[in-house]
Design a binder for these strands. Sequence first.
RNA 1: GGUGGGGUUCCCGAGUGGUCAAAGGGAUCAGACUGUAAAUCUGACGGCUCAGCCUUCGGAGGUUCAAAUCCUCCCCCCACCA
Length: 429
Amino acid sequence: MSVIESLRDRGFVDNTTHEEELAAYLSTPGRRCYIGFDPTGSSLHVGHLVTVMALCHMQRAGHCPIALVGGGTGMIGDPSGKTEMRQMLTPEIIDENKAGLRSQLSRFLDFSDEKAFLLDNADWLTGLEYIPFLREVGRHFSVNRMVKAESYRARLDSDEGLSFIEFNYMLLQAYDFYELSRSHNCYLQMGGSDQWGNIVAGVDLVRRKGGETAFGVTFPLIMTASGIKMGKTHKGAVWLDPERTSPYDYYQFWVNTDDADVERFLALFTFLPMAEVKAVAGLSGAELNAAKAVLAFEATALCHGHEAALEAYKSAAAMFGVKKIAESLLPSSTIPRGGDASALDSVPCLEVETELFQGEGVPVFKLFALAGLAASGGAARKLIRQGGAYINGERLDKEDRLVVEADFEGGEILLRAGKKRYHRIALKG
RNA sequence: GGUGGGGUUCCCGAGUGGUCAAAGGGAUCAGACUGUAAAUCUGACGGCUCAGCCUUCGGAGGUUCAAAUCCUCCCCCCACCA
C-alpha cells in the first residue's frame, strides 16, 4: 500500500491535486514534501497534530519531510480561517517560537542525516525586492481569481475586511513552494484544508514559472464529535510542550475522547495498524473505554516518550482504578495490559514550606487556589460548597477547615477538584 | 471627509434614572446518573479576608439623594456615500 493510500485509509486526506501523478511521484522513495508551520505560538498544540503525523508517515515511508517555519510569512499573517486580522509578530517573538517548534518537531521526526529538514522562509522572503517580485511572481496571479478563493472571500464579506498586507499572503506562500521546488527539489505541499487555496496557488506558480508539476494534499479539519475543533478545550489548547500541558494532562485529554471519536483518532494519532484500529468499531462500554486508554497511551508515548506515557498511565490507574486491557485489543500497542503497580509521580506537585502548616495551619480553600485547582480563593470556596473538593480522598464540607502538618501523609497531601483534577502538595525539605 | 448605526459582565444578547452584580441563551465549573464518554436533570457562574464588603456596563468629566440608563467632550467599530 502506498503512503498516500495509507494516509487516505487513516483519514488524513481531504483533497489532492492530480491524484495519479501524485501516486507516481511518491512511488519513488526519498521524495521531498513540506508543510508550513506558523510561528505564531511558541508551542504546537493538538490541533497541529494531524500535520505532524502526516510528516511522520511520510518519513516512515522513506520520504523526506520538510517542516517550513513561516518566519517570513508570520510577519504577514494568514487570513485563511481567520475572521479577524492577525496580530503582527515581532521578529524576536518569531525567533523564540521557532526554537520551540524545532524541539517539539524533533520528538516526532528524525532530523539527522538530512532525513528531514527544518527551514525558515524568512531566509528567502525577507530579502525580496518589491518591484522584481511583482514582475516575476505577481504577474502570475489574477486578482479576479484570488478574490474568489475561499480564504479571502470570507474576509471580504466580513465586517472586518481584509488588509492589503494579508492579501499578499497567498503570493508569498506560493513563492515558498516555488523556492522549495528549486532549492530542495520539493514538489509536494501538504496542509490543512484551509490551506487549499494557498497550496493550489503554489502548484500553479511552480508550473507557470518552471513548467513543472507540483502536488498538493490537504487534510480535513478535525472536529470532535461534539463539534469542537480538535485540541481545543475550554481551557484553551492542549499543548505538545510538556511545560504547558503536562504529560499527565495530555494523557487525560486523550482518555476523555468522545466515544464516537475513538476509532478515528486511533487512525489519525497513533501508528497502530489499521486492521487493529478498525476492530474498535464494534466496541462499547468498558471495552471501548479500554480502547481510549490505548489511544491515550500511544498518543502520549509519541509526544512525550514511552516513559512519560507509562507514568501517566500508572497515575491514571492509581486514581481511577486499574483497567484490564484485553490482549486482543489493539495488540500492537505496548500499553501494560495487566494491573501492575501504580504511581502518583506524574500528578503535578507543589512544594510548600513546612512552617506554614505548623501552628494554626492553612485554610484548605487557599491550598486549592495555590495549587491552581481553583482560579481564586473565592472559586475554591465555591468548589468546596458544592461538594467538589477532596483532600486525601475525603470530601470537604468546610471551606476554611485548617490544614496542619498532621494532615500530610508521608509528607504529601492529595487534593482533588471534581472527578478528574488532582494536585499534590508536598512539604519542602 | 460626509451621513447614519453602534460599543453591556468569557461569548451572544436584554436592559433607557432607583426594585441592577445587571434578563435570556451559549460556554464553563460542581453535583446526580454513568464507563475518567455522550445525553439528561440540579446547582454555581464579577472579586474578596464571604451571612458582610469592594469593583463593573468604551474613556474622562458633569447633573441627581440615586446613572448601564440623562448631559458634555474624547476614543474605537460598522454601514452607506466620497
